[in-house]
Simulated assay, not measured.
Amino acid sequence: MPDGGPELSLTLHRAIAEIAAPEWDACAGGGNPFVSHAFLQALEESGSTGGRSGWLPQHAALRDAGGHLLACAPMYAKAHSYGEYVFDHGWADAFERAGGRYYPKLQVAAPFSPVPGPRLLLHPASGLGFGAMAQGLAQACRQLDLSSAHVTFCTEAEWTALGEAGWLQRIGTQFHWTNAGYASFDDFLGALSSRKRKAIRRERRDAEASGFVLKTLRGHEITPRHWAAFHRFYKATTDKKWGRSAYLNARFWPLLGAALGDRVVLMVAEQDGEPVAGALNLLGDEALYGRNWGAVVDAPFLHFELCYYRAIDFAIEHRLPRVEAGAQGEHKIQRGYLPVPTYSAHWIEHAGLRRAVAQFLDQERPAMLREMEALATLSPFRRDGDEG
């Protein structure tokens, strides 16, 4: 078995419950809730993964001869490429037109969550490097006779190690807000150009003037009534954006709240005592992760207020280094969220497909870096010599 001989064994598990939560979380650490046992269990228990979802758990566990868990990875056999946010539909179409079979494939990911973080979860006392899991996952792909394995939104260190192990490397971009030690939201605004500062103040003022009661709720403050309303908001967004069934079902939200407690942060707008819009965030050790948004009203700048500005308020109050607002939407730049790279790595079994994808990625990576450089020039932050 990988990087250590026959005393290491890799097993695949059809449910996260097959691996004890303390064992899993000892490898995952506590910093990123999206790879926690509790988050993955809520997905499975709600039926959002498993069953007919097209996300069939195949969680990887690497153990020593004594049965001790040294490393693990949240992994799924996928019958499609939905809910991943690193798009390989073109690879699948090309391969199947040529007579190949792209699906099923293996996906190492936090389902439905384009959130960067650890994916190859090593116990701190294991003495292993990422190469052990890289080799084990590639071997699993081969033994299961699958087309490919994909590790998406991994850390840069994992991406580097996977590349060294022969995986194909890909980059993307997201928009994150960085806390430069701000004492208040006004302190943050002071770092912006005068025009951008005035625009944000006007947006916040207009959102406040809309007559909604705006709240930031955590843990037990989020009631079943809030979750029922939030699922309506979520459905409204998915129906509007994609016109298809939502990935996450109504059972998921209260399970998530019960499992993660105060790590769940919900920004809500209420009208006449009823929730009418909401933005869901999960709290990590180093970041507030913005995830889902929806509304059943259309009000000026309410989206920006709940998703971006109140997240900044929260991060400043709790001294968090950053807010991660996800991909899509260069409008985030004007509100202080700047482009950063994201990382994924891909093991392709078929030699011809591997060559084609490698050539594509060799062209895509520098193009993505150029795009990020161009986007960074749109930064709202004052430059040396600018007037305050």
Rank of each mutant, 00 (worst) to 15 (best):
residue 2 P to D: 02
residue 5 G to T: 05
residue 10 L to P: 01
residue 15 A to Y: 00
residue 22 P to H: 03
residue 22 P to Q: 04
residue 29 G to A: 08
residue 31 G to K: 02
residue 34 F to Q: 08
residue 35 V to R: 01
residue 38 A to V: 14
residue 42 A to P: 00
residue 43 L to Q: 07
residue 43 L to I: 04
residue 45 E to P: 01
residue 53 S to Q: 11
residue 61 A to G: 13
residue 62 L to N: 09
residue 66 G to F: 11
residue 79 A to R: 15
residue 80 H to Q: 08
residue 85 Y to E: 08
residue 98 A to W: 09
residue 100 G to L: 06
residue 101 R to P: 02
residue 112 F to L: 05
residue 114 P to Q: 12
residue 114 P to Y: 10
residue 117 G to E: 04
residue 120 L to S: 04
residue 120 L to V: 06
residue 124 P to I: 10
residue 129 G to A: 04
residue 144 L to C: 02
residue 152 T to L: 15
residue 156 E to L: 08
residue 158 E to M: 06
residue 161 A to Y: 05
residue 161 A to P: 00
residue 166 G to I: 05
residue 177 W to S: 12
residue 181 G to I: 07
residue 181 G to M: 13
residue 183 A to F: 00
residue 188 F to T: 03
residue 198 K to S: 13
residue 198 K to A: 15
residue 203 E to L: 04
residue 209 A to S: 09
residue 211 G to P: 13
residue 213 V to S: 07
residue 215 K to Y: 01
residue 223 T to E: 08
residue 225 R to I: 00
residue 238 T to M: 13
residue 251 R to H: 14
residue 256 L to N: 12
residue 258 A to P: 05
residue 259 A to F: 11
residue 261 G to L: 09
residue 268 V to A: 15
residue 274 E to I: 09
residue 279 A to N: 04
residue 279 A to G: 12
residue 289 Y to S: 10
residue 290 G to L: 08
residue 294 G to V: 00
residue 297 V to C: 10
residue 297 V to W: 00
residue 300 P to Q: 14
residue 303 H to Q: 05
residue 305 E to R: 03
residue 311 A to W: 04
residue 323 V to T: 04
residue 323 V to P: 07
residue 326 G to P: 06
residue 326 G to M: 03
residue 335 R to C: 02
residue 348 I to G: 01
residue 359 Q to E: 15
residue 364 E to H: 10
residue 365 R to G: 07
residue 368 M to I: 15
residue 374 A to I: 01
residue 379 S to Q: 06
residue 381 F to G: 10
residue 382 R to M: 10
residue 382 R to N: 05
residue 382 R to L: 14
